[in-house]
Nucleic acid binder design. Structure first.
Ligand SMILES: [Mn+2]
Ligand SMILES: [Mn+2]
Ligand SMILES: [Zn+2]
Ligand SMILES: [Zn+2]
Lengths: 144, 144
DNA sequence: ATAATAATGCAAATCATTTGCAAGAAGCCA
DNA sequence: TGGCTTCTTGCAAATGATTTGCATTATTAT
């Protein structure tokens, strides 16, 4: 069944916690499920609101704490697009960058191996090794 | 003397203010001079400290306010590298992107026409027109 | 079950940045 | 130069996002 590029769900996120020796609490389970189901890039508050619908006892602090621990374990990705608060996404698929629609706020994902390669080249020329990078395009739909 | 790519100084920044109908105050003059002389990417506090040496009466609020107005006029560039507070730089030269040394915090500038072109291409393919972008490489010096 | 320990909710604390407001300059014209 | 109008400033208080201390609750291994 597995084709090597699976769409991991909440189960995989739970496994990450378990392997790290962390506890799987009701609130974490809820947050992870939302994160895995989402497919979008919600900020802490949005995540909190969605989680609260499932479990009204959840707190915003827990959302933040959970994001922090998952980020440390590499299970999620944190983005800080211009202006707004941090936004998160389940880090399952392959790496990609983002284009933000300035009019609608919509986040479009894309990936360019050529750009990835060029970045490596540039870093090497400068005598560096890339640990991470951030590429964000801000634009508007062109009407033509 | 001018070769079309001049290293504009504080004078040019003052011109920006004047043309925008804004007043040239002692504190603004001080901040602009520092920004033009710097060549680096100081944050508001660093800017404030340097300015305070010239004019002890200056306030951090004024630094922030000045950065905001200069940014609106396109005279400076504001960067928000991972983690830290916003950092500023005089926007005279041509566009460039940054590589941040994770060990030293040093900011290295670079520019790649190929990457710039690729970004345009990608945006076009997605049906967008780029208004601005942000490309940051985070890495460490490779010892070899 | 129970004990040991990690996680939670809440309120208060931080950090960076912004803002209200009264006092102090700048720019402009007489 | 003086006066007037309007813009800026400094200061303190407000914001917004995120973190943290602490007492309480929940998990997990025994
Ligand atoms: Mn994404
Ligand atoms: Mn720069
Ligand atoms: Zn990338
Ligand atoms: Zn660029």
């Amino acid at each position: 069944m597995s084709d090597g590029r699976e769409q991991s769900g909440a189960g995989e996120l739970e496994a990450v916690l378990k392997e790290a020796g962390l506890r799987i609490t009701r609130q974490r389970r809820t947050i992870l499920a939302i994160l895995a189901a989402g497919g979008d890039h919600p900020d802490a508050l949005a995540l909190y609101r969605r989680a609260a619908r499932e479990d009204p006892s959840i707190s915003l602090s827990t959302v933040y704490r959970t994001m922090k621990v998952l980020e440390e374990k590499g299970a999620i990705q944190r983005h800080t697009f211009e202006g707004g608060p941090a936004r998160f996404e389940h880090a399952d698929g392959q790496h990609h960058d983002h284009l933000i629609d300035l009019d609608t706020g919509e986040v479009v994902e894309f990936r360019s191996d050529r750009i990835e390669k060029l970045q490596e080249e540039i870093a090497r020329e400068l005598g560096y090794e890339i640990v991470s990078h951030r590429l964000e395009l801000y634009g508007r739909r062109r009407r033509d």
